[in-house]
């Protein structure tokens, strides 16, 4: 198996935590992974992405080629759209619905959604409202991961186990909240 994932968002939105959980789940399965990240100046409120590649065979390139990503997971709708040239023709897009507006010329959100809906498989999920309603504002990214679980083709229990491993040091309450967030995301992806 081979899954190429692009994680997209704005600096500070927590895409690397999503990558860490998927990466941990892949490691637990004994899979190969490569995860290219963005550090440095662009983290200051600019667009950021991470290329996460998982495979049962050794992986050479740290970067994903155009038109070959299986899944785009985005914390923000315009950032989802930014990477569509990387999406494979049968690929999935899982995106949060709330725009992150930190630029004066942010496009019309209807136009962004219309463009996203022209892609083959798109899941829009309002992680912000779900996180608020469930009193877990810091776990919005895990809600998004839950919504992406099926598209990733990963065993849900493995993702749960990865959350337990990664958040273990932060205590049971944090682990439970993130597990709950994962489930909420899976159940609310429409």
């Amino acid at each position: 198996m081979k899954t190429d994932i692009i994680l997209a968002g704005v600096g500070g939105q927590g895409i690397l935590s999503i990558a860490t959980i998927i990466g941990q789940a892949a490691l637990d399965q004994g899979l190969y992974i490569k995860q290219a990240e963005v550090h440095g100046m662009s983290q200051r409120g600019g667009d950021v992405q991470s290329n996460l590649r998982i495979s049962s065979n050794p992986i050479h390139s740290d970067l994903i080629a155009l038109g070959t990503a299986d899944v785009i997971i985005a914390m923000e709708p315009m950032e989802a759209l930014r990477y569509q040239p990387y999406l494979g023709k049968d690929g999935w897009v899982i995106t949060a619905t709330s725009p992150f507006v930190n630029i004066p010329n942010y496009p019309d959100i209807q136009a962004i959604n219309a463009a996203l809906d022209s892609l083959p498989h798109v899941v829009h999920i309002d992680i912000e409202s779900l996180a608020k309603a469930n009193k877990m504002p810091k776990a919005a990214n895990m809600i998004l991961l839950g919504a992406a679980a099926d598209a990733l083709g990963m065993d849900f229990e493995l993702l749960r186990q990865a959350i337990r491993t990664v958040f273990a040091a932060k205590g049971d309450a944090i682990v439970d909240m993130n597990l709950q967030a994962l489930t909420i995301g899976r159940e609310n992806k429409g």
């Binding site: 200051r44 759209l81 930014r82 999406l87 494979g88 023709k89 630029i103 496009p107 463009a115």
Partner: peptide, 20 residues
């Protein structure tokens, strides 16, 4: 040959880094 791609969306605008 490269894979077939979806062309870059004309709707997307740049999001340069900014001071916090």
């Amino acid at each position: 040959a490269s894979a077939q791609t979806f062309a870059p969306s004309a709707t997307v605008v740049g999001r340069p880094p900014a001071l916090c």
